[in-house]
């Protein structure tokens, strides 16, 4: 798997395989399907966070509108599934989800090249809110406030076999997709393409002066980020058998940013950890206090981390280990 071309140390692959194996096996001992599904949800939200980290951590652009890609991915999958029940439905749903996100990605990528810092943040936020309003009001097509409900697809490979998803097979399917995406995104960030982007983040004028096409690199990364976010949205739709306008809402984008900060920006794996911490805290406060007010303690924690621990949990742990 590592191959001779790989820049990875063998230690990385061992750690990676151990983590994946633990994530695959541990849910088997969970007392009930609630916790199993929660872990699957963390992986999907973690993938969304990872996609946003591609921009925050590797280009220095904070998107406050990742719900746009997440939502279109989800509604794309929803359309495929309300429309067909063929054995290929699962793959069609993922494909349509990706296609939806790609369209949005092109749109945002076009803008991303001309907007800096806050302007990018505000514009992505506005884009996502536009589509939230549209989804919310265009009831005939989107189901409006009620969203779209459909039956989940069957798990199939190349028409070879087809089986109903169980909680565990869904988990393993999601885990496989997320793990592959992680490896792919990591490769991209370590490729020459990724190095140029990091140079842009450090010093844009200089990178331009050396002769790199800054715009094309930025657009490429925005597209990749949109596609990965769309994939997570499609997975989320399939997982819940439901698409809701809330997936487009500002709060979804905001929570994505929170996952990043909690876990550690620029690490790809950190945001997944961050999503886990967030979901766990949310469950904890919802159970022991109230499901409506969990954002008070979590928001406070987030704010304090931004101010005093900007490297996030993973960065913090790494730093401690280095000492």
């Amino acid at each position: 798997m590592a191959g001779t071309r790989s820049a990875e140390k063998p230690g990385f692959w061992i750690a990676f395989l151990v983590v994946v194996a633990v994530l695959a096996v541990v849910p088997l001992w969970f007392p009930n399907s609630f916790w199993q599904r929660l872990l699957t949800e963390v992986l999907i939200l973690g993938l969304l966070a990872m996609s946003s980290d591609l921009l925050i951590g590797y280009v220095g652009m904070v998107s406050f509108g990742h719900a746009l890609f997440f939502g279109t991915g989800c509604y794309g999958a929803a359309y495929a599934l309300t429309w067909t029940e063929s054995p290929f439905a699962l793959w069609l749903a993922l494909l349509l989800g990706l296609a939806g996100a790609a369209v949005m990605g092109i749109f945002v990528a076009f803008y991303s090249t001309r907007l800096r810092d806050i302007y990018f943040s505000i514009t992505t936020l506005v884009f996502a809110q536009i589509f939230w309003v549209i989804v919310f009001t265009w009831t005939d097509v989107t189901g409006g406030e009620n969203g779209l409900v459909f039956s989940p697809p069957r798990l199939s490979f190349l028409g070879l076999f087809a089986a109903e998803f169980t909680t565990m097979s869904m988990h393993w399917f999601v885990l496989a997709v997320v793990a592959l995406c992680y490896v792919f995104c990591r490769r991209v960030t370590q490729s020459p393409f990724g190095k140029v982007l990091q140079a842009i983040r450090e010093n844009e004028p200089r990178t331009r002066a050396i002769g790199y096409n800054v715009e094309r690199h930025k657009m490429g990364m925005v597209m990749l980020s949109a596609l990965v976010a769309g994939l997570s949205g499609a997975l989320y739709g399939i997982f819940n058998a439901y698409a809701a306008p809330d997936y487009f809402f500002f709060l979804q984008s905001g929570e994505t940013v929170i996952y990043n900060v909690l876990g550690g920006i620029g690490t790809l794996a950190g945001p997944v950890l961050g999503a886990g911490v967030f979901v766990l805290l949310k469950e904890l406060f919802s159970t022991y206090w109230s499901p409506e007010y969990y954002l008070i303690p979590v928001g406070l924690l987030f704010t304090i981390m931004v101010i005093y621990m900007p490297q996030g949990l993973l960065g913090f742990l790494r730093h401690k280990l280095n000492e």
Partner: peptide, 11 residues
């Protein structure tokens, strides 16, 4: 500036 955006967003 991104840090202040995130902090005020949390608040």
């Amino acid at each position: 500036p991104l840090t202040t955006i995130l902090a005020t967003f949390g608040i």
